[in-house]
Amino acid sequence: MNYAAQHHIGSYQHTRTETTTAVTPTVGRVRQLDAKTKGRQQSAERQTEIRTDSNVANAILKCTFLPKLKTAQSVQACQKTERDFYKSLSRLAEHYSIEPMQTQDFEFPYNITLSMWDMETKLKRTNINWDGFKLIQNSGKTYFVSEERYNTGTTLYYIPIKPLFKMLKDPKRKKTAQLLLSVCSYLYHIVLIPYYRQEESYLYWLYETMNDWVEQDEETAETETNKRELRNAEYIGDKIEQKLFNHINLKVFEKRLNRFKSVDTFDSECWKIARNAFALYTEYPSENIFRNATLPEKDPYDNDENEIIGMEKYISFIADIKGWLYGSLSDTINNEFSEYGAMEEPTISKRFDVSEIPTTNLDFENRLFALLDDLCTILDDYKTTEK
């Protein structure tokens, strides 16, 4: 199954009483946000800001600077800007281990423009999470602010638990299921992945909405089947959550990992996922998925509070990723998300002035989202695997 398939958002057609034959995969493209609405707005601080453009080739053309006036005062101001710029550039280059181009011999402001283009080009090549930087001029000081971001690619990270429920009842896969149970317990307790049976979760509300629709619809040949699917989603969700809640799954995680014997390719893939999860658990024992969640900058004069997709909406445990119920859920989700203009994503900002530079990075997020992708894939593959 292609887990990065594009799902087109068209006119919404309600299909509550129809059996869906083609459904959205768990980790799949929901929609590509419009480039005109996805960009961040200018911050409320109203600082003079020179930001690198996403098109590096046009970066030089799109940078703007104060006019170069031939007065003693303006010359001093330009010299101060240059000094601050190169000090900040030096700190930026050292932090990211980049050798900057020597541009001091070029005339101001072209030396600054060239330096920014050079750094942007090199950082894009060397930093997988590079999202750009801003040159800030504030209170007579000039300095860089960089931004690193994990790009989720408008992807739904929904972990289906029905395959795990079935696996636990399969004598041939019980050890495999217990290993994945430790993985999911780590995601539940430590990483804080939302669970669809928790009332505060986004998907809980959607499941309740589906239930209300079925109850209010006219009776059809599919009504009882749909009601049964909803009841099963609740039952399986409650049963698996009881198991995930038990901290014994974390205590015996390493033991299960070390004692596990792979019989086939499916087992080997499950063991690799568990190994990667345990490595994250060991290296980041208390970090959760929302630790660097940052909302995109908004226009301070825009009072619309419902234009950003929060991380809790596209990351969650879910009952299943097949059947009428998931088809209806995905229709509703796609329809709702089409109204949003941006996504909340893990982001780190670093300021390169005289203050201390943070040493944080997005290594945890890079590895965690890859883990979620692999876990969703292997759970979906369970049905086609036999020993």
Rank of each mutant, 00 (worst) to 15 (best):
A93H: 01
E120W: 08
F337N: 11
K322A: 06
L280Q: 04
S286T: 04
R351W: 00
E336L: 14
N226D: 05
S11D: 04
N258K: 07
V252T: 15
F85C: 08
A279H: 14
T152C: 04
I357E: 07
Q178F: 09
W130A: 04
P109Q: 06
E269Y: 07
V252Y: 15
I378W: 01
T155F: 11
S97H: 00
R51S: 11
F278E: 03
Q178H: 13
Y326R: 10
D53T: 09
S268D: 14
E120Q: 10
K38T: 12
I136C: 04
Q216W: 08
S88Q: 03
A293I: 10
D363I: 12
T142C: 13
N292K: 13
K62S: 11
F85G: 06
P346H: 12
E224Q: 14
R256V: 00
L295M: 04
K174D: 08
A5S: 07
K298N: 07
T223S: 02
L156M: 09
T347V: 13
F253A: 00
L206N: 05
E120A: 14
K134A: 15
R83I: 06
I378M: 03
I136K: 01
V23S: 02
Q41F: 03
F133Y: 11
D84N: 13
D331T: 09
F278I: 07
G28Y: 10
G28K: 06
I98Y: 00
T103Y: 11
T384D: 15
K243P: 01
Q47K: 06
R256E: 14
F278W: 14
S338D: 11
W205Q: 12
I50Y: 01
K175Q: 06
Y284W: 09
L362H: 02
Y207E: 00
P358L: 11
Q42G: 01
F290A: 12
L379H: 09
Y281C: 10
E107T: 05
T121R: 12
H189K: 02
S286M: 08
D302M: 09
Y143A: 03
N361D: 14
E365Q: 09
I308S: 03
R259F: 01
P171S: 10
T52D: 03
A277R: 09
L368E: 12
S146M: 02
K122E: 08
Q73Y: 15
D238T: 15
A221L: 11
E148I: 09
C184L: 06
F364K: 02
T385L: 11
L164I: 06
L181P: 09
G327C: 02
L168I: 12
F364T: 03
Q242G: 01
I161S: 02
C184K: 02
L187M: 11
P109Y: 00
W117S: 05
K166V: 00
S355A: 06
S330L: 03
S43N: 13
S330Y: 07
V263T: 14
N111P: 00
T64C: 04
S90F: 11
T19D: 13
N246P: 01
L135M: 08
